Simulated scan of single mutants.
Amino acid sequence: MRIVFAGTPEFSVPCLAACRASGAEVVAVYTQPDRPAGRGRKLTPSPVKQAALDAGLAVEQPESLKDAATRERLAAYAPDLMVVVAYGLILPRKVLALPRLGCWNVHASLLPRWRGAAPIQRAILAGDAESGVDLMQMEAGLDTGPVLLERRTPIRAEETGGSLHDRLSQLGAEVLAEGLQHVLAGDALVPVPQPDTGVTYAHKLDKAEARLDFGRTAIALERQVRAFDPWPVAEATIAGETVRVWAGRGLDVAHHATPGSVLAAGRDGIDIACAEGVLRVTALQRAGGKRIGAADYLNARPDLRTAR
C-alpha cells in the first residue's frame, strides 16, 4: 500500500512514524512551507519535514493544493491512501478523491465535539472530563466525516495544553497504526457517521484570549492557565505588574474583596480575588525574565509579602 502523509507540527510526527512502521510504503510527505522562527527569524523546517528528511522520504511543500499542477504532482505518487494529521491546508474535493482508499484524518477530539483547529485547548477550557482521538474518513466538510476508530482518555485535574497534546499525539499514532493494520490485513473498517447533536467548534487560539479577567470565576481562570500552557501562556496584572502566569490553582474561598486584588502572598503562592473564589498563582514570568516560582517572584516583590 502506497501512502502519502500530510502533516506539519510536532503532534503529527508519531503518526508519520506509525505509517512507516506499518509495512506500507510512505511515498511522499506533504508539509507546510518553511516559516521564520526564533529571534533571527530564520526559515525553519516543520517538525514533520525534519522527520521526513531524517528518514530519507520525499518532501513536498506547496502553498496550496488548489492548482492543477500541484494535484497532478500528487497524483503522480499514485497513493492508495492519504493520511492527514494537523497539516494546516484545506484538501479540495479533487484531492480527497485521488487516493484509492480516500483520505484519513487523525483528529484530537471525540467528534463531533470540538471540530476545528484547537480541540485540545478548547476541551480544557470547557472543563471536559475526557478527550481522545478519532480516526476519520475525510470528506469536504470541516471534520464532518465518519469515524473509523476512536480512543478515549480522561482529562486529568492538573492537565495542561502541553501534557494533553503529548498524550493525544501518542494515542493518535496508536489508533492510526490499528487502522493501517486492519487495511493491510484486508479487513474493512466500518465508518460510523457522526451524530447530528453535540457539535461544537474549536476555533483557532488568539493571543488576546490569554488575558486573565479576574471578574470571572477562579476555576475558569485555572482552566485558562492550564489550557494556554505552553502557548500562548496566560497573562495578568498582579499588583500593578503585568506578568505571564504559568501555573495556578482555583480555590473555593469566600471573600468580599475586589476582583484582581491580592489577598495573600507567601511561599505557597499569590492569592488573587476572583468574582467567585481565589486564584492561587504558583509559577509566573516577569517581562524579559524566565519562568519562576511564586517564592522567587516575591523575593523581588517584598511589598506583596505583607498583603492580606
Rank of each mutant, 00 (worst) to 15 (best):
E60S: 13
L81C: 10
A68R: 15
A108I: 05
R39M: 01
H107N: 00
R39Y: 00
G88I: 03
T44E: 13
A129M: 02
A69S: 14
L74V: 11
A68T: 15
R100E: 13
P112I: 04
R122N: 08
Q121A: 14
A52T: 04
A68G: 08
D67S: 08
C103G: 13
L74G: 05
D128F: 07
A37N: 09
A76E: 08
G56H: 13
D67H: 05
V48F: 11
R71S: 08
T44G: 02
A76S: 11
V95T: 14
Y87E: 11
D67E: 11
V59M: 03
L65F: 15
V95F: 08
A58V: 14
L43R: 11
G38S: 09
L43W: 11
E63P: 04
E72N: 07
R113C: 06
L53W: 11
G40H: 15
E60Q: 14
P92T: 06
A86Q: 10
P92A: 03
G38N: 05
P112H: 03
L101E: 10
R93T: 14
I90P: 05
L96R: 04
G116Y: 03
R113H: 03
L57I: 11
A126P: 10
A52Q: 09
I124Q: 00
V133M: 13
A97G: 15
L111G: 12
L91F: 09
K94V: 10
L74D: 09
L81G: 05
V48Y: 09
I124K: 02
A76G: 07
P45Q: 06
A75H: 03
A76R: 14
I90Q: 10
L65K: 03
T44H: 07
W104G: 04
E72K: 15
L53F: 01
V133S: 08
P119C: 09
S131W: 12
A108C: 08
L125Q: 14
L125M: 13
R93Q: 15
P112W: 05
A51Y: 02
Y77N: 03
E63T: 07
R73M: 04
T44P: 14
D80E: 10
R73F: 00
A117W: 07
Y77H: 15
L91S: 02
R100H: 10
L111R: 06
G88Y: 01
L57T: 05
A129C: 09
P99R: 02
A55W: 00
P45Y: 00
M82F: 07
A76T: 12
A68S: 15
M82N: 01
V133W: 02
K94C: 05
D80L: 07
P99D: 05
V48Q: 12
R100T: 14
D54P: 01
L53V: 15
L110F: 13
S109R: 13
A118R: 06
P119R: 14
G38T: 07
S64I: 06
V85D: 09
A58Y: 00
P119G: 12
Q50I: 11
L91G: 02
